[in-house]
Design a binder for these strands. Structure first.
Lengths: 195, 195
DNA sequence: GATTTAACTGAACGATCGTTCAAAACCAAG
DNA sequence: CTTGGTTTTGAACGATCGTTCAGTTAAATC
Protein backbone atom coordinates (compact mmCIF):
# COMPACT_ATOMS: atom_id res chain seq x y z
CA UNK A 1 0.00 0.00 0.00
CA UNK A 2 1.05 3.54 -0.63
CA UNK A 3 -0.39 7.01 -0.50
CA UNK A 4 -3.00 6.65 2.15
CA UNK A 5 -2.00 9.69 4.12
CA UNK A 6 -0.69 12.56 2.11
CA UNK A 7 -3.18 11.68 -0.59
CA UNK A 8 -4.57 14.60 -2.51
CA UNK A 9 -8.05 13.21 -2.92
CA UNK A 10 -9.25 14.46 0.43
CA UNK A 11 -8.08 17.92 -0.56
CA UNK A 12 -9.17 17.99 -4.19
CA UNK A 13 -12.53 16.38 -3.50
CA UNK A 14 -13.89 19.16 -1.31
CA UNK A 15 -12.43 21.76 -3.63
CA UNK A 16 -14.28 20.22 -6.56
CA UNK A 17 -17.55 20.35 -4.64
CA UNK A 18 -16.93 23.91 -3.49
CA UNK A 19 -16.13 25.10 -7.00
CA UNK A 20 -19.14 23.30 -8.46
CA UNK A 21 -21.42 24.76 -5.79
CA UNK A 22 -20.31 28.29 -6.48
CA UNK A 23 -20.37 28.00 -10.26
CA UNK A 24 -23.71 26.20 -10.40
CA UNK A 25 -25.24 28.86 -8.17
CA UNK A 26 -23.76 31.70 -10.17
CA UNK A 27 -24.40 30.52 -13.71
CA UNK A 28 -26.72 27.53 -13.47
CA UNK A 29 -25.98 23.84 -13.81
CA UNK A 30 -26.40 23.61 -17.56
CA UNK A 31 -24.33 26.72 -18.22
CA UNK A 32 -21.29 25.46 -16.31
CA UNK A 33 -18.89 23.06 -17.99
CA UNK A 34 -16.75 20.46 -16.32
CA UNK A 35 -13.75 22.31 -17.70
CA UNK A 36 -14.79 25.48 -15.88
CA UNK A 37 -15.03 23.59 -12.61
CA UNK A 38 -11.65 21.99 -13.26
CA UNK A 39 -10.05 25.33 -14.04
CA UNK A 40 -11.36 26.73 -10.76
CA UNK A 41 -9.82 23.82 -8.88
CA UNK A 42 -6.57 24.05 -10.84
CA UNK A 43 -6.79 20.65 -12.47
CA UNK A 44 -7.65 19.11 -15.83
CA UNK A 45 -11.24 18.15 -16.61
CA UNK A 46 -10.53 14.44 -16.60
CA UNK A 47 -9.38 14.56 -12.99
CA UNK A 48 -12.87 15.51 -11.84
CA UNK A 49 -14.03 12.00 -12.63
CA UNK A 50 -12.03 10.72 -9.69
CA UNK A 51 -14.59 12.51 -7.54
CA UNK A 52 -17.86 12.07 -9.33
CA UNK A 53 -19.14 9.52 -11.84
CA UNK A 54 -20.71 12.30 -13.89
CA UNK A 55 -21.85 15.90 -13.82
CA UNK A 56 -25.41 15.16 -12.81
CA UNK A 57 -24.35 13.12 -9.80
CA UNK A 58 -22.12 15.99 -8.72
CA UNK A 59 -25.17 18.26 -8.69
CA UNK A 60 -27.32 15.70 -6.95
CA UNK A 61 -24.83 15.15 -4.16
CA UNK A 62 -24.49 18.87 -3.54
CA UNK A 63 -28.24 19.12 -3.16
CA UNK A 64 -28.46 15.99 -1.07
CA UNK A 65 -25.68 17.10 1.27
CA UNK A 66 -27.41 20.43 1.73
CA UNK A 67 -30.78 18.91 2.51
CA UNK A 68 -29.33 16.36 4.93
CA UNK A 69 -27.39 19.07 6.70
CA UNK A 70 -30.56 21.16 6.89
CA UNK A 71 -32.54 18.30 8.40
CA UNK A 72 -29.87 17.53 10.94
CA UNK A 73 -29.54 21.16 11.96
CA UNK A 74 -33.26 21.75 12.38
CA UNK A 75 -33.36 19.04 15.03
CA UNK A 76 -31.42 21.38 17.31
CA UNK A 77 -34.29 23.86 17.56
CA UNK A 78 -36.54 22.51 20.27
CA UNK A 79 -38.70 24.45 22.66
CA UNK A 80 -41.09 23.95 25.57
CA UNK A 81 -44.21 24.94 23.61
CA UNK A 82 -45.41 25.52 20.04
CA UNK A 83 -44.85 29.28 20.20
CA UNK A 84 -41.22 29.04 21.23
CA UNK A 85 -40.65 26.16 18.83
CA UNK A 86 -42.07 28.22 15.99
CA UNK A 87 -39.96 31.19 16.94
CA UNK A 88 -36.86 29.00 17.03
CA UNK A 89 -37.75 27.55 13.64
CA UNK A 90 -38.13 30.98 12.07
CA UNK A 91 -34.82 32.19 13.44
CA UNK A 92 -33.11 28.97 12.47
CA UNK A 93 -34.44 28.94 8.91
CA UNK A 94 -33.33 32.50 8.24
CA UNK A 95 -29.88 32.05 9.74
CA UNK A 96 -29.18 28.65 8.18
CA UNK A 97 -30.22 29.76 4.72
CA UNK A 98 -28.32 33.02 5.04
CA UNK A 99 -25.13 31.07 5.73
CA UNK A 100 -25.49 28.93 2.60
CA UNK A 101 -26.87 31.10 -0.19
CA UNK A 102 -25.30 29.04 -2.97
CA UNK A 103 -26.57 25.71 -1.71
CA UNK A 104 -30.04 27.14 -1.11
CA UNK A 105 -30.12 28.62 -4.58
CA UNK A 106 -29.13 25.35 -6.20
CA UNK A 107 -31.51 23.25 -4.12
CA UNK A 108 -34.41 25.41 -5.28
CA UNK A 109 -33.43 26.14 -8.86
CA UNK A 110 -31.80 23.06 -10.26
CA UNK A 111 -34.41 20.45 -9.45
CA UNK A 112 -35.31 20.15 -13.10
CA UNK A 113 -31.78 19.06 -13.95
CA UNK A 114 -32.06 15.97 -11.79
CA UNK A 115 -32.98 12.55 -13.07
CA UNK A 116 -36.41 11.30 -12.03
CA UNK A 117 -35.15 9.23 -9.14
CA UNK A 118 -32.69 11.82 -7.89
CA UNK A 119 -35.52 14.34 -7.99
CA UNK A 120 -37.74 12.08 -5.91
CA UNK A 121 -35.01 11.72 -3.31
CA UNK A 122 -34.50 15.46 -2.93
CA UNK A 123 -38.24 16.02 -2.83
CA UNK A 124 -38.54 13.50 -0.02
CA UNK A 125 -35.96 15.37 2.01
CA UNK A 126 -37.70 18.68 1.35
CA UNK A 127 -41.05 17.22 2.35
CA UNK A 128 -39.47 16.02 5.57
CA UNK A 129 -38.25 19.51 6.37
CA UNK A 130 -41.67 20.98 5.69
CA UNK A 131 -43.14 18.41 8.05
CA UNK A 132 -41.01 19.78 10.87
CA UNK A 133 -42.75 23.12 10.53
CA UNK A 134 -46.17 21.62 9.96
CA UNK A 135 -45.95 19.57 13.13
CA UNK A 136 -45.24 22.73 15.08
CA UNK A 137 -48.31 24.35 13.56
CA UNK A 138 -50.48 21.30 14.26
CA UNK A 139 -49.30 21.17 17.86
CA UNK A 140 -50.07 24.86 18.24
CA UNK A 141 -53.55 24.46 16.82
CA UNK A 142 -54.29 21.51 19.07
CA UNK A 143 -53.09 23.48 22.08
CA UNK A 144 -55.36 26.36 21.06
CA UNK A 145 -52.34 28.63 20.76
CA UNK A 146 -52.53 28.99 16.99
CA UNK A 147 -55.42 29.55 14.65
CA UNK A 148 -54.62 28.15 11.23
CA UNK A 149 -57.25 27.13 8.68
CA UNK A 150 -55.03 24.71 6.78
CA UNK A 151 -51.67 23.77 8.28
CA UNK A 152 -50.39 22.39 4.95
CA UNK A 153 -50.97 25.65 3.14
CA UNK A 154 -49.67 27.71 6.03
CA UNK A 155 -46.50 25.61 6.08
CA UNK A 156 -45.80 26.20 2.41
CA UNK A 157 -46.69 29.88 2.65
CA UNK A 158 -44.43 30.48 5.64
CA UNK A 159 -41.48 28.61 4.19
CA UNK A 160 -41.79 30.53 0.92
CA UNK A 161 -41.89 33.76 2.88
CA UNK A 162 -38.85 32.87 4.97
CA UNK A 163 -36.79 31.57 2.08
CA UNK A 164 -37.48 34.77 0.21
CA UNK A 165 -35.12 36.56 2.57
CA UNK A 166 -32.21 35.12 0.62
CA UNK A 167 -33.21 36.97 -2.52
CA UNK A 168 -32.76 40.41 -1.06
CA UNK A 169 -30.99 40.40 2.29
CA UNK A 170 -27.36 41.49 2.32
CA UNK A 171 -25.54 41.84 5.61
CA UNK A 172 -23.99 45.10 4.44
CA UNK A 173 -27.43 46.70 4.21
CA UNK A 174 -29.35 48.83 6.67
CA UNK A 175 -30.59 45.84 8.66
CA UNK A 176 -28.77 43.20 10.65
CA UNK A 177 -29.69 39.56 10.39
CA UNK A 178 -31.16 39.81 13.88
CA UNK A 179 -33.41 42.66 12.73
CA UNK A 180 -34.67 40.52 9.89
CA UNK A 181 -35.21 37.55 12.18
CA UNK A 182 -37.21 39.75 14.55
CA UNK A 183 -39.40 41.20 11.84
CA UNK A 184 -40.11 37.90 10.18
CA UNK A 185 -40.93 36.35 13.52
CA UNK A 186 -43.36 39.18 14.06
CA UNK A 187 -45.07 38.46 10.75
CA UNK A 188 -45.12 34.70 11.27
CA UNK A 189 -46.51 35.14 14.76
CA UNK A 190 -49.38 37.18 13.39
CA UNK A 191 -50.14 34.68 10.62
CA UNK A 192 -50.73 31.89 13.11
CA UNK A 193 -52.31 34.07 15.76
CA UNK A 194 -55.92 33.73 16.76
CA UNK A 195 -58.39 36.34 15.58
CA UNK B 1 -44.51 44.52 -53.12
CA UNK B 2 -45.66 41.10 -52.14
CA UNK B 3 -46.47 39.05 -49.11
CA UNK B 4 -47.59 41.60 -46.58
CA UNK B 5 -50.82 39.92 -45.63
CA UNK B 6 -50.83 36.18 -45.67
CA UNK B 7 -47.30 36.32 -44.43
CA UNK B 8 -46.30 33.52 -42.12
CA UNK B 9 -44.25 35.66 -39.80
CA UNK B 10 -47.22 36.66 -37.71
CA UNK B 11 -47.97 32.98 -37.22
CA UNK B 12 -44.48 31.61 -36.78
CA UNK B 13 -43.35 34.45 -34.55
CA UNK B 14 -45.79 33.74 -31.73
CA UNK B 15 -45.18 30.03 -32.09
CA UNK B 16 -41.45 30.57 -31.64
CA UNK B 17 -42.06 32.55 -28.47
CA UNK B 18 -44.55 30.00 -27.17
CA UNK B 19 -42.17 27.11 -27.80
CA UNK B 20 -39.26 28.96 -26.23
CA UNK B 21 -41.35 29.86 -23.19
CA UNK B 22 -42.39 26.30 -22.59
CA UNK B 23 -38.97 24.78 -23.20
CA UNK B 24 -37.08 27.38 -21.16
CA UNK B 25 -39.48 26.84 -18.26
CA UNK B 26 -39.24 23.08 -18.48
CA UNK B 27 -35.52 22.60 -18.97
CA UNK B 28 -33.88 25.96 -18.33
CA UNK B 29 -32.51 28.51 -20.76
CA UNK B 30 -29.01 27.08 -21.02
CA UNK B 31 -30.25 23.53 -21.45
CA UNK B 32 -32.48 24.34 -24.42
CA UNK B 33 -30.95 24.58 -27.90
CA UNK B 34 -32.19 26.70 -30.75
CA UNK B 35 -32.66 23.45 -32.67
CA UNK B 36 -35.04 22.14 -30.01
CA UNK B 37 -37.13 25.28 -30.25
CA UNK B 38 -37.11 25.05 -34.04
CA UNK B 39 -38.18 21.40 -33.96
CA UNK B 40 -41.10 22.29 -31.68
CA UNK B 41 -42.20 24.95 -34.15
CA UNK B 42 -41.66 22.69 -37.13
CA UNK B 43 -38.94 24.74 -38.78
CA UNK B 44 -35.19 24.70 -39.23
CA UNK B 45 -32.96 26.41 -36.68
CA UNK B 46 -31.88 29.15 -39.06
CA UNK B 47 -35.47 30.33 -39.49
CA UNK B 48 -35.62 31.37 -35.83
CA UNK B 49 -33.29 34.24 -36.62
CA UNK B 50 -36.08 35.93 -38.54
CA UNK B 51 -37.74 36.44 -35.16
CA UNK B 52 -34.91 37.14 -32.77
CA UNK B 53 -31.38 38.47 -33.22
CA UNK B 54 -30.07 35.84 -30.81
CA UNK B 55 -31.04 33.38 -28.11
CA UNK B 56 -30.46 35.77 -25.21
CA UNK B 57 -32.72 38.42 -26.69
CA UNK B 58 -35.43 35.81 -27.14
CA UNK B 59 -35.25 35.13 -23.40
CA UNK B 60 -35.15 38.78 -22.50
CA UNK B 61 -38.22 39.61 -24.55
CA UNK B 62 -40.18 36.79 -23.00
CA UNK B 63 -39.36 38.13 -19.56
CA UNK B 64 -39.99 41.71 -20.56
CA UNK B 65 -43.36 40.89 -22.13
CA UNK B 66 -44.37 39.06 -18.99
CA UNK B 67 -43.39 41.88 -16.66
CA UNK B 68 -45.06 44.53 -18.79
CA UNK B 69 -48.23 42.47 -18.95
CA UNK B 70 -48.09 42.03 -15.19
CA UNK B 71 -47.73 45.75 -14.61
CA UNK B 72 -50.56 46.60 -16.96
CA UNK B 73 -52.86 44.03 -15.39
CA UNK B 74 -52.20 45.09 -11.81
CA UNK B 75 -53.52 48.55 -12.64
CA UNK B 76 -56.98 47.01 -12.91
CA UNK B 77 -57.14 46.17 -9.22
CA UNK B 78 -58.28 49.35 -7.52
CA UNK B 79 -60.38 49.71 -4.39
CA UNK B 80 -61.93 52.31 -2.15
CA UNK B 81 -59.55 51.73 0.77
CA UNK B 82 -56.25 50.02 1.59
CA UNK B 83 -57.91 46.86 2.89
CA UNK B 84 -59.91 46.23 -0.26
CA UNK B 85 -56.97 47.21 -2.42
CA UNK B 86 -54.76 44.75 -0.59
CA UNK B 87 -57.38 42.04 -0.92
CA UNK B 88 -57.68 42.73 -4.64
CA UNK B 89 -53.90 42.63 -5.00
CA UNK B 90 -53.65 39.26 -3.28
CA UNK B 91 -56.37 37.72 -5.40
CA UNK B 92 -54.92 39.26 -8.54
CA UNK B 93 -51.37 38.11 -7.87
CA UNK B 94 -52.41 34.52 -7.26
CA UNK B 95 -54.71 34.34 -10.28
CA UNK B 96 -52.37 36.10 -12.70
CA UNK B 97 -49.39 33.97 -11.73
CA UNK B 98 -51.47 30.80 -11.83
CA UNK B 99 -52.42 31.52 -15.41
CA UNK B 100 -48.82 31.92 -16.53
CA UNK B 101 -46.70 29.37 -14.70
CA UNK B 102 -44.06 29.16 -17.42
CA UNK B 103 -43.53 32.89 -17.71
CA UNK B 104 -43.42 33.28 -13.93
CA UNK B 105 -40.90 30.50 -13.63
CA UNK B 106 -38.65 32.00 -16.25
CA UNK B 107 -38.91 35.52 -14.89
CA UNK B 108 -37.69 34.30 -11.50
CA UNK B 109 -35.18 31.67 -12.52
CA UNK B 110 -33.39 32.90 -15.58
CA UNK B 111 -32.29 36.34 -14.43
CA UNK B 112 -28.70 35.20 -14.30
CA UNK B 113 -28.75 34.40 -18.00
CA UNK B 114 -29.42 38.01 -18.90
CA UNK B 115 -26.79 40.50 -19.90
CA UNK B 116 -26.12 43.24 -17.36
CA UNK B 117 -28.30 45.82 -19.03
CA UNK B 118 -31.14 43.41 -19.78
CA UNK B 119 -31.01 42.36 -16.14
CA UNK B 120 -31.30 45.95 -14.98
CA UNK B 121 -34.34 46.47 -17.16
CA UNK B 122 -36.18 43.44 -15.80
CA UNK B 123 -35.23 44.39 -12.27
CA UNK B 124 -36.68 47.86 -12.79
CA UNK B 125 -39.97 46.36 -13.88
CA UNK B 126 -40.01 44.01 -10.92
CA UNK B 127 -39.24 46.85 -8.53
CA UNK B 128 -42.14 48.77 -10.02
CA UNK B 129 -44.50 45.88 -9.33
CA UNK B 130 -43.30 45.62 -5.76
CA UNK B 131 -43.95 49.32 -5.35
CA UNK B 132 -47.61 48.76 -6.18
CA UNK B 133 -47.94 46.54 -3.14
CA UNK B 134 -45.78 48.72 -0.94
CA UNK B 135 -47.88 51.78 -1.66
CA UNK B 136 -50.96 49.90 -0.54
CA UNK B 137 -49.20 48.98 2.69
CA UNK B 138 -48.01 52.54 3.25
CA UNK B 139 -51.50 53.91 2.65
CA UNK B 140 -52.92 51.40 5.09
CA UNK B 141 -50.37 52.29 7.76
CA UNK B 142 -51.03 56.00 7.31
CA UNK B 143 -54.78 55.38 7.60
CA UNK B 144 -54.19 53.39 10.79
CA UNK B 145 -55.71 50.35 9.17
CA UNK B 146 -52.48 48.35 9.02
CA UNK B 147 -49.70 47.86 11.49
CA UNK B 148 -46.47 47.10 9.68
CA UNK B 149 -43.02 47.67 11.14
CA UNK B 150 -41.21 47.93 7.81
CA UNK B 151 -43.27 48.18 4.64
CA UNK B 152 -40.30 47.27 2.43
CA UNK B 153 -39.70 44.00 4.21
CA UNK B 154 -43.40 43.23 4.44
CA UNK B 155 -43.72 43.81 0.70
CA UNK B 156 -40.96 41.36 -0.13
CA UNK B 157 -42.20 38.84 2.41
CA UNK B 158 -45.76 38.93 1.12
CA UNK B 159 -44.80 38.69 -2.53
CA UNK B 160 -42.53 35.72 -1.81
CA UNK B 161 -45.37 34.08 0.07
CA UNK B 162 -47.87 34.67 -2.71
CA UNK B 163 -45.57 33.64 -5.52
CA UNK B 164 -44.85 30.42 -3.65
CA UNK B 165 -48.34 29.24 -4.57
CA UNK B 166 -47.09 28.43 -8.05
CA UNK B 167 -44.67 25.83 -6.73
CA UNK B 168 -47.35 23.57 -5.30
CA UNK B 169 -50.86 24.52 -6.41
CA UNK B 170 -52.47 22.34 -9.08
CA UNK B 171 -56.06 22.97 -10.03
CA UNK B 172 -56.77 19.22 -10.03
CA UNK B 173 -55.98 19.05 -6.31
CA UNK B 174 -58.26 19.19 -3.30
CA UNK B 175 -58.49 22.97 -3.34
CA UNK B 176 -59.89 25.38 -5.89
CA UNK B 177 -58.05 28.53 -6.83
CA UNK B 178 -60.70 30.49 -4.96
CA UNK B 179 -59.99 28.46 -1.83
CA UNK B 180 -56.32 29.31 -2.12
CA UNK B 181 -57.07 32.97 -2.72
CA UNK B 182 -59.27 33.03 0.38
CA UNK B 183 -56.71 31.37 2.59
CA UNK B 184 -53.83 33.53 1.44
CA UNK B 185 -55.92 36.62 1.89
CA UNK B 186 -56.62 35.46 5.41
CA UNK B 187 -52.89 35.13 6.12
CA UNK B 188 -51.98 38.41 4.46
CA UNK B 189 -54.73 40.19 6.36
CA UNK B 190 -53.32 38.94 9.63
CA UNK B 191 -49.75 39.92 8.75
CA UNK B 192 -50.73 43.56 8.29
CA UNK B 193 -53.33 43.62 11.05
CA UNK B 194 -52.88 45.66 14.18
CA UNK B 195 -52.07 43.86 17.39
C1' DG C 1 -47.87 34.89 -66.00
C1' DA C 2 -43.99 37.79 -64.63
C1' DT C 3 -42.13 40.14 -60.75
C1' DT C 4 -41.01 40.95 -56.10
C1' DT C 5 -39.94 39.83 -51.60
C1' DA C 6 -40.81 37.50 -47.22
C1' DA C 7 -39.94 32.97 -45.26
C1' DC C 8 -37.41 29.12 -44.97
C1' DT C 9 -33.98 25.36 -45.98
C1' DG C 10 -29.82 22.97 -45.58
C1' DA C 11 -25.27 23.05 -45.13
C1' DA C 12 -21.51 24.86 -43.07
C1' DC C 13 -18.52 27.60 -39.46
C1' DG C 14 -15.52 27.24 -35.36
C1' DA C 15 -16.22 26.36 -30.65
C1' DT C 16 -17.32 23.74 -26.89
C1' DC C 17 -19.62 19.95 -24.62
C1' DG C 18 -19.31 15.45 -21.23
C1' DT C 19 -16.65 11.67 -20.92
C1' DT C 20 -12.87 8.13 -21.57
C1' DC C 21 -8.30 6.36 -21.12
C1' DA C 22 -3.43 5.20 -21.80
C1' DA C 23 0.49 7.13 -20.10
C1' DA C 24 2.99 10.00 -16.91
C1' DA C 25 3.81 11.92 -12.39
C1' DC C 26 3.85 11.48 -7.79
C1' DC C 27 4.32 9.82 -3.16
C1' DA C 28 4.73 6.53 0.75
C1' DA C 29 5.99 2.04 2.30
C1' DG C 30 9.21 -1.83 2.10
C1' DC D 1 16.13 2.55 -4.61
C1' DT D 2 12.49 -0.19 -5.90
C1' DT D 3 7.85 -1.20 -5.77
C1' DG D 4 2.81 -0.32 -5.85
C1' DG D 5 -0.94 2.32 -5.80
C1' DT D 6 -3.09 7.09 -6.17
C1' DT D 7 -3.73 11.01 -8.71
C1' DT D 8 -3.38 13.73 -12.67
C1' DT D 9 -2.36 14.84 -17.40
C1' DG D 10 -3.25 15.50 -22.16
C1' DA D 11 -5.17 14.03 -26.02
C1' DA D 12 -8.90 12.23 -28.19
C1' DC D 13 -14.02 10.67 -28.99
C1' DG D 14 -18.44 11.85 -31.19
C1' DA D 15 -21.99 15.01 -30.35
C1' DT D 16 -23.96 19.30 -30.12
C1' DC D 17 -23.80 24.27 -29.61
C1' DG D 18 -25.26 29.36 -31.57
C1' DT D 19 -25.06 31.59 -35.61
C1' DT D 20 -24.50 32.72 -40.66
C1' DC D 21 -25.79 32.66 -45.39
C1' DA D 22 -26.33 31.47 -50.31
C1' DG D 23 -29.92 29.45 -52.42
C1' DT D 24 -34.79 27.67 -52.78
C1' DT D 25 -39.74 28.05 -52.10
C1' DA D 26 -44.03 30.31 -52.03
C1' DA D 27 -47.37 33.84 -51.97
C1' DA D 28 -49.22 38.44 -53.11
C1' DT D 29 -49.04 42.22 -56.46
C1' DC D 30 -48.93 44.03 -61.06
Amino acid sequence: MARTTGSHSDITGPRVRAAALQLFARHGFAAVSMRQIAREVGVQAGALYNYTPDKQTLLFELMQDHMVELLEAVRDTPGPNPVSRLKAFVRFHIAFHHDRPDAVFIAYMELRNLSAENFREIETLRRRYETVLEEILVAGVEADQFEVVDTKIATLALIAMLTGVNTWFRSEGRLSLADVQDQYWDMVRKVVAAG
